[in-house]
């Protein structure tokens, strides 16, 4: 179990603010830190790993004190047995894929583990290549294999899937979920993607300007306890054309273009480039399962 209380002054884009959080995470739990960039999610992760020092902190892991600023205790990152996946993967360019994973082995662990992980992450064909020749998704798998090779008791994932396309992302989500469950490693993922948080985490901490604004299950947090009977989408107006007595509105929602009609009195207030919200009743929609 992790019990952490961390306080640190940070310099953000809009001046300085205070990172002030208290977390409690059960053993084997998968939690997410969710929030926009620049609110201190990565810093929080780095403090847990021991790569950054807080101004004032108390971190306990399974009953061992990692950090206690009052007693001047600060366990080195080397001794914390943390698996960390960096946003830029941080693969060692001088080592092959296999070399990277091997480098992570603790003294006394068998090389058998390397073969297992390479197999598991589907890296067999790539194992003798250098990281620079790999695609983003492949690098990500190497980084995950390396983080697991050190037999961590805590796994920290810093926006690991942000650079991937949807399909690869979904595959790796399943992979991580499966591994996390079978190994029972306590895992914290930093993400600003709602669907990712929904899929992976049992619990989510929503961070805003250095504080935890909300926490609970993803369903509780993101739908605020009550499910709405409406679809809501935000988008940008691409075109606005008169059509008989109505107006036709072309709106970009995500990466889809939709065309809707607007009443003249609505259309008069709008112009191309405006951000709008489209609301529609979610009554009797067609539901198609995707393979």
């Amino acid at each position: 179990m992790i019990k952490a209380q961390i306080n640190k002054r940070l310099i953000g884009a809009n001046g300085s603010f205070e990172l002030d959080v208290e977390l409690q995470i059960a053993k084997g739990e998968f939690v997410a830190l969710y929030g926009p960039s620049g609110v201190g999610k990565t810093t929080l992760l780095r403090c847990l790993a021991g790569l950054e020092q807080a101004d004032q902190a108390n971190i306990k892991f399974n009953g061992n004190t990692w950090v206690d600023t009052r007693l001047r205790i600060n366990l080195e990152p080397q001794l914390r047995r943390v698996g960390y996946m960096f946003q830029d993967y941080a693969l060692f360019p001088n080592m092959t894929v296999r070399g990277n994973v091997e480098f992570a082995l603790r003294k006394g662990s068998s090389t058998h583990r390397i073969n297992e992980l390479i197999e598991l992450m589907n890296l067999g064909e790539l194992q003798h290549q250098k990281p620079e020749t790999l695609s983003g998704g492949q690098k990500q798998r190497v980084a995950l294999a390396r983080a697991l090779a050190s037999e961590p008791s805590l796994l920290l994932l810093d926006e690991p899937f942000s650079a991937l396309d949807t399909e690869m992302r979904s595959r790796l989500h399943n992979e991580v979920l499966r591994l996390q469950r079978s190994l029972g490693i306590t895992t914290i993922i930093v993400s600003h993607d709602v669907s990712e948080v929904y899929k992976l985490a049992k619990r989510v901490f929503v961070m805003e300007a250095g504080r935890i604004a909300q926490h609970g299950t993803p369903a509780d947090v993101f739908s605020a306890g009550q499910t709405s009977g409406k679809f809501r989408f935000t988008g940008e107006i691409l075109a606005l054309e008169p059509m008989d007595v109505l107006y036709s509105l072309t709106v970009l929602v995500g990466n889809q273009i939709v065309r809707v009609v607007a009443m003249p009195e609505e259309a008069l207030k709008l112009s191309v480039g405006d951000a709008v919200m489209l609301v529609s009743k979610a009554f009797n929609p067609m539901i198609l399962k995707l393979e």
Partner: peptide
Amino acid sequence: SLTDAAKVLGKS
């Protein structure tokens, strides 16, 4: 991050 990565992997 290379140094950081090596540190969390327990390297001196």
